[in-house]
Design a protein around this nucleic acid. Structure first.
Lengths: 178, 178, 178, 178
DNA sequence: TATGAATGAGCGTTCATTCAT
DNA sequence: AATGAATGAACGCTCATTCAT
């Protein structure tokens, strides 16, 4: 049912009606209300669900061989995904949610990725979680809002990733000479 | 009245009702409809108005002494602004609008800023308009959606700007240079 | 101005807006309200005006050489007219109006036509004003409501007129006679 | 609910609001919209319902002993009814509807009555369906519009019916004879 | 005096939410 | 427990009417 709701919200946006969702889920509207007291609650549940999956994916990458590659791959995947999932966007946007109990610790999972990538020297050490989440949210938001195609996504993320990488000798060693 | 509408839309988002807008504007709903045939038209008018101001600001900066500084200042201003203006976001998102006559040529204005900054060596030559607009849209969207405070904005834009700057010797010339 | 209102109401029916009427009349809406306190009042005025013209026409025919022909011609003219004038219909329908002072005595005018036609033996003596007006109203209403073409109007009025004529020997004397 | 809608439309005419109808029906507006997608659809449903009843009644009379009496009785019944039912009027007016499937064949039913009455010599052979429907529509329209009382209805229909009957010897045989 | 901008009640319609079945 | 018919507040929009100019 969450699945169906996610599909419908992804397709029709936030204005999708409960009836539509119920229809796609193959249940009566009343059945949805048995589990979620309001439309807002259903929506929140979807967001939380989304976050869980995001956290899971981050967990999987936590032990990848190349932390830098893992980090950038993760970032890219999320943005890629948000092109088609209208709801995900808010998963990252709604940072406040994670205070609630039971919410998967997506921030923790992402932070692990970040720290490892920083320790590997793939990400500048002075980048904090806050701005990282901000960048993720920003690119997701824009990707779905403006319907980025693959080329645009690649080029735009390219700029962001460059901004995240350490600059100078480290990155372009030979270039800077001495 | 446009002003009031902008305020309300900024506060309540696109779902703000015409009654609400009328109330804030201190007029009857009919008065709004006298000037804008539909809610959509009102919305478009706000966007266009916003674009005009954006284009004007870009024009002012077009002949600034330091093109790089001008460019980054402009970028920052816009994002700063969008924290409070929910609508601006779509001004950039809706690139298609500029085909219509009478619409201020915001893209042209921004492009001028970009080109000058690139010629001055402050921005990488391989950055195109498309990804620049994407980055602008993304940061605006996120800034208003997530209510960035000044610190977060500075740090996040810092990353993006670093990604836009030429890297290596070019960027830190004095440092690496002879 | 009454003229303009009549034209518009004839074209668009009772739902025509005051703005539309004012526009066609070439005045502001306020000017109409100066003369007629409400839309209803304007409408009533049109009806009364219409009645006056009807009464005038009846007056002209009052002294025609052939009373029977005059009567049927008058009936036909009115019905014919109502095909195109949505408002006329109510002139006849609203019998109650004629109590008011200043209303043209259309009933009197029509009655004169009827009486003369009856005296000439062209209309049955037992036909009263009430049913005559009812028939007029009925055919006008239907003519405009259903958009009678000329053929249908002729055939339908033919039946009604036959019903109004004296029957038996009087009408088809030669036929039934020896 | 159809009943309630019919009552309200009969009372207030086509401008009756959905709220009013809902109130009289004792339901919420939404309930009406559940069954009829638009006001227009509700209206059509009433008309069709009305037509069905009309057709049924005509069917019942189709085999009456006295075709002439049956015909005139039917005509009278309909007009009588329309005094109180503002909507019926359009059932007859909207002849075009009967093309749609599922619409009761009221025209066919009436035609059967007419033909039988003509074969019985009670109605003139040269009266066609078109003018018969025109007369029906006209008298219904006027009966409800002007609120005919029984006396007026009788006298007015008397004229129309005389117009429909064969004239001369046939009708008043004994009289003209001698 | 004439104007038309402004008003806001009211309309048709939608949809989150409730509750009898 | 599950359903979906019923509800009615709220929406976008229109237009008769008012009144400052």
């Amino acid at each position: 049912m969450l699945e169906a709701a996610e599909v419908v919200l992804a397709r029709d946006g936030l204005d999708a009606s409960m009836r539509e969702i119920a229809e796609v889920a193959g249940v009566g509207v009343g059945t949805i209300y048995r589990q979620f007291p309001t439309k807002e609650a259903l929506y929140q549940a979807i967001v939380v669900d989304r976050m869980r999956r995001l956290a899971d994916r981050a967990g999987e990458l936590a032990s990848a061989a190349d932390p830098g590659a893992a980090f950038f791959a993760y970032f890219t995947t999320i943005v890629e995904d948000s092109t088609v999932k209208k709801v995900l966007v808010d998963a990252l946007a709604t940072a406040g949610i994670d205070a609630k109990a039971g919410t998967p610790d997506i921030k923790g999972a992402i932070e692990a990725l970040l720290v490892r990538a920083q320790e590997a020297g793939a990400i500048r050490a002075d980048v904090g979680m806050e701005e990282l989440l901000a960048l993720l949210s920003a690119t997701c938001l824009a990707a779905q809002h403006n319907n980025w195609d693959e080329g645009l996504r690649t080029r735009t993320l390219g700029v962001v990733f460059d901004g995240l990488r350490p600059s100078g000798p480290v990155r372009r060693t030979g270039a800077s000479g001495a």
